[in-house]
Design a protein around this nucleic acid. Sequence first.
DNA 1: TATTTATATGTGTATTTTCACATATGTTCA
DNA 2: TGAACATATGTGAAAATACACATATAAATA
Lengths: 186, 186
Amino acid sequence: MALKYALLGLLTKNEATGYELNQQFKETMIHFWSAHHTQIYRQLVKMEEEGLVSSQVVHQVDYPDKKVYRLEDKGYEMLLQWLFSKEILPSTLKDDLLLRVSLFQLIPADEAIAFLERAKEQHMFGLGLMEKWRDSHFPEGEFNQEDLGEYLTSEFGQRYMQHWIEWCDWAIQVIKRTKEKGSDVK
Amino acid sequence: MALKYALLGLLTKNEATGYELNQQFKETMIHFWSAHHTQIYRQLVKMEEEGLVSSQVVHQVDYPDKKVYRLEDKGYEMLLQWLFSKEILPSTLKDDLLLRVSLFQLIPADEAIAFLERAKEQHMFGLGLMEKWRDSHFPEGEFNQEDLGEYLTSEFGQRYMQHWIEWCDWAIQVIKRTKEKGSDVK
DNA sequence: TATTTATATGTGTATTTTCACATATGTTCA
DNA sequence: TGAACATATGTGAAAATACACATATAAATA
């Protein structure tokens, strides 16, 4: 359901091909969304059938032909209606890494720490990418009104990464402390 | 896939019915996971077929009969194998609220602020629940070794809520500032 | 010369997740 | 008495998502 609105949202900025929309998912929407490219292509076909978007095949000499999608009025209206809807559903996390963390009592402390170190590195890498992206898109923290949403969500993504990293440090310390005690307790 | 391990993980603590496992999802795993009760029941049936868990129907006088699931050796082994696997996939967010935030340039500033205020309230409510839960489970921040995972992930959940709330405050300020400038800029 | 990478769009299938609905029993509250 | 709620487990169907594979062109790299 929401993927539809995500695509309509991206198309408010520019017309785009399924390929480009997939790129944008991987780049700018990485802060809060993800989608497989096959899902995007299929969703676009469906949306065209519903009259929310229209497409035009553009012939290219050097590359395969591409299909450019454009937002139609009906799609824009539907998007706005969704944006103005009053219901705010609480968002739920679904995180593989944390699921494993929740079972740390089943593995040795050293394994747990190594896992957290790697998770931390991964999120530091992610943070680096986000900072880079933000610096190039919003130098000096400046942004245009039409990029407000992106500015806000990219800050969220960056802070989320920082939160992850800080929590990793905290969790590693907790495990190290319990490990010290462990000799006489457990 | 991961739901299987989530259930196996919960069953390492105690044998439980599908109903109870659903409760636990809603209570303790709210920090990082969610699942519909129908999905849990179906997954349990599948896991029993695979010999990962076994079940026993317990007759009750006052309530409908219940089906208690117990972790089998094969299930425990599979869980450990998963826990020790080296691959760490980066976790991706998927958040309805943020998708709407990403399109804030399409709605009036007042609407955007109202939305963020409500989102903030909601996360403050969530934070309250988590703090309460933590106080009752880990008074004075003390925890038993067998609850290590829960202790770590609940801290994550709590910090995540705080991160959300702080970000809401920040975003509201950003929009208020652009609103002031808005009169002469856009 | 062969492999990889980038451009570009898909199909078929399987899995995962959700939604609407169904069925029981007993308690509490209006 | 009737409604709502908690206990307890599911089915059928739809929707969302992911996985493996397919196709085609051209550039860059090993």
